[in-house]
Design a protein around this nucleic acid. Sequence first.
DNA 1: GCTTGACCTCAAGTGGACTTGAGGTTGCAT
DNA 2: ATGCAACCTCAAGTCCACTTGAGGTCAAGC
Lengths: 149, 149
Amino acid sequence: MQGEKLLSVGEVARRSGTTVSTLHFYEASGLLSPERSSGNQRRYRRDALRRVAFIRAAQALGISLAEIAEALRALPEQRTPTKADWSRLSSGWRAALDQRIAGLQALRDRLDGCIGCGCLSLRACRLYNPDDALGRSGTGARRLADHSR
Amino acid sequence: MQGEKLLSVGEVARRSGTTVSTLHFYEASGLLSPERSSGNQRRYRRDALRRVAFIRAAQALGISLAEIAEALRALPEQRTPTKADWSRLSSGWRAALDQRIAGLQALRDRLDGCIGCGCLSLRACRLYNPDDALGRSGTGARRLADHSR
DNA sequence: GCTTGACCTCAAGTGGACTTGAGGTTGCAT
DNA sequence: ATGCAACCTCAAGTCCACTTGAGGTCAAGC
């Protein structure tokens, strides 16, 4: 066995929709650790593609690379992860995702309550005065809605 | 009229849950432009609090400060915005928010499809191979779920 | 064997959103 | 009048997620 064809960094970049420099960066950040060829070139196993996709997906959930790296450290680095490994991980993130969606929905509700209420000129506004901590959460989420490249 | 008591930067910071330096920064970014006292200190009208809340809310939607600034430029700077002004603005963002929620829900569905499927070891995974561009969107959304702080 | 494109490392740069610090001024209470 | 907290400006620093660049190596086709 072991007849798995390994992928070059360029191939992984192309197929995962990232760039070579991003893959270098991920490696430096401890998210990937490809083998090396005799000539010191990176050689990725196929499941690196999944790992990258997972990283991207997690980022889209608002999870930082540091957290992703931490989570991935729980996975066997050189072994194809088991179903259980994966489930544990992704169900944790599923919960985070649920929470995030709920937060946005609450925000939307508040926004709805404000649209047309002349809110900005009123004194008691739910957006203005949300009681709960809407504010600050890291550096803020950025343009998640932007699905262009 | 005009008997509106103006707020100092410290007051605005305290009441809006930001910091003085953030307010300075917002001002430098064209998001706020308070008047000045005779002694050159910032004096905010009450609705600056709403503006700040709006900025925070918009950030939570994943809108960058630059975009927020642009949107706010459509509002009269020195006048309390009208109901119509506000509605126009917030309903645009409402749409963005809907889109974002939908995106996250789709992601969640994909994630659900993957949990327990042993995905990471399979070849055809919807997360791994989402077809649509899940990837890259700005610098990525960060820890939106984190409502602590 | 030579060219060419893909690869390597390491250092520095970028952009967004702030924060920190130095050095000086204002305003309110006593 | 004076003390002191809160204010001012401007420059630089920080963190994250990358990107860019310089200078050099590797591998596959001709």
